[in-house]
Simulated scan of single mutants.
Amino acid sequence: MYDKPFAGPVFVRLLGARHPSAVSSLGHAADLLFDNWPRTDGPKYAEARRACLNCDGSDDSLAWTRHAFKEAAREAGILVEDSYFI
Rank of each mutant, 00 (worst) to 15 (best):
M1R: 10
D3I: 01
D3H: 01
K4D: 03
K4G: 04
P5I: 06
F6N: 00
F6Q: 00
A7C: 03
A7N: 12
G8F: 13
G8W: 14
P9I: 06
V12Y: 04
R13Q: 06
L14Y: 01
L15T: 12
G16M: 12
A17R: 05
A17C: 06
R18K: 11
R18T: 05
H19K: 02
P20V: 09
S21K: 15
S21F: 05
S21I: 08
A22N: 04
G27P: 03
G27K: 04
A29Q: 13
L33A: 04
D35S: 15
N36P: 00
N36D: 09
W37D: 09
W37V: 14
W37E: 13
P38M: 11
P38L: 14
R39H: 13
T40R: 15
P43T: 10
K44R: 13
K44D: 07
K44I: 02
R49P: 01
R49Q: 09
A51Y: 12
L53D: 08
N54R: 15
D56L: 09
D56H: 14
D56T: 07
D56V: 05
G57N: 15
D60R: 13
S61E: 05
A63V: 11
W64L: 15
W64T: 08
W64A: 03
R66P: 03
R66E: 09
H67M: 06
A68D: 13
F69S: 00
F69N: 14
E71T: 15
E75A: 09
A76Y: 12
A76H: 14
L79N: 08
Y84I: 05
Y84L: 07
F85T: 02
F85P: 01
